[in-house]
């Protein structure tokens, strides 16, 4: 199922990107419009979290991208179809889609597990998991303190990354079939990566709470998600620029860190790079608790991740 979903997503992507006019009026069909919208949404998210290292992203650009995201969100809200975009976004009180209900059991099941509900991936549209995922990844490693910095990051295989997250699933997870495939493709993926990606998945959910450890919390925070997400975007815009911001550190940490982590260019990876992925994992927790600047140890990880994504996406 997973593979299927991935494929579908990929196709969408192609459709959306290639030169079709995005305007609803032009759009030949509602479907393609939705696809394009989702593609744009994904691209926007990727843009927000990919920056050149250590440089302040252009505020103008960030604001424009944020406005784009907001606009799309508005549309989605009006259509009542927020759910497909953000897994956790749908409020419990809302009339739940099938996907959501399916996901529920997964949640409860997961409560005991450190790693996120992989099931979500299968049930929900890939994009939902994927886009936020990038953010979340950082989350895991990042501490709130890092928030202020604008870490730019290397370019991921931009929009196509969607399919990749599922691929990275932790071996330990309930995931299984998809995982096997993935592993074959990329033997490189190590447990540390797996955890990282796992966070990715719960990303949408976790975004509300943003605590790295917070998978469990994320569940509780679900209801808030809708509100919190928009907030996130805005935050990104302001990150790093405003030292005077009195925003939730949590939110911030999410965003900023991601930029750092993704950056393959930062050279500092050296020291930690030699470590085995497992070791990396171990080192994670200390880092998260400390006020660390950039999470250099994970650079290696992430670049590998990127690579994996590329392989998966077939780019």
């Amino acid at each position: 199922m997973l593979a299927k979903a991935g494929k579908r997503k990929f196709d969408e992507h192609e459709d959306g990107l290639e030169g079709k006019v995005v305007s609803p009026t032009d759009g030949p069909s509602k479907v393609s419009y939705t696809l394009q919208r989702q593609t744009i949404f994904n691209i926007s998210l990727m843009k927000l979290y990919n920056h050149r290292p250590l440089t302040e992203p252009s505020l103008q650009k960030t604001v424009l991208i944020n406005n784009m995201l907001r606009r799309i969100q508005e549309e989605l809200k009006q259509e009542g179809s927020l759910r497909p975009m953000f897994i956790g976004a749908s409020q419990p009180t809302d009339p739940l889609g099938d996907t959501y209900q399916e996901a529920q059991p997964a949640f409860s099941h997961l409560a005991s597990q450190p790693v996120q509900p992989t099931d979500l991936v299968s049930t929900t549209p890939l994009e939902s998991c994927l886009t936020p995922a990038s953010l979340l990844e950082d989350d895991t490693f990042c501490t709130p303190q890092t928030v202020q910095q604008n870490g730019p990051s290397s370019k991921l295989p931009s929009p196509p990354p969607t399919p990749s997250p599922p691929s990275v699933q932790p071996v330990k997870d309930s995931f299984s079939s998809a995982l096997d495939e993935i592993e074959e493709l990329c033997p490189i993926s190590t447990s540390s990566e797996a955890t990282a990606t796992a966070h990715l998945k719960d990303g949408p959910v976790a975004s509300g709470t943003l605590k790295p450890e917070g998978t469990q919390e994320s569940r509780t925070s679900e209801p808030k998600l809708i509100d919190s997400l928009p907030g996130n975007f805005e935050l990104t815009a302001s990150t790093g620029f405003l030292t005077d911001l009195t925003l939730d550190d949590i939110l911030f940490s999410d965003i900023d860190t991601s930029m750092y982590d993704f950056d393959p260019c930062t050279s500092n990876a050296g020291t930690t790079s030699k470590m085995a992925p497992d070791e990396l994992l171990k080192t994670l927790s200390p880092y998260s608790s400390q006020p660390v600047t950039p999470n250099q140890p994970f650079k290696m990880d992430l670049t590998e991740l990127d690579h994996i994504m590329e392989v998966l996406v077939g780019s």
Binding site: L59, Q60, V63, N66, N67, G231, E234, L235, A237, S238
Partner: peptide, 10 residues
């Protein structure tokens, strides 16, 4: 509140 920021001077 920077969250309300939707416009910049160009």
């Amino acid at each position: 509140n920077m969250e309300d920021l939707t416009e910049v001077i160009t």
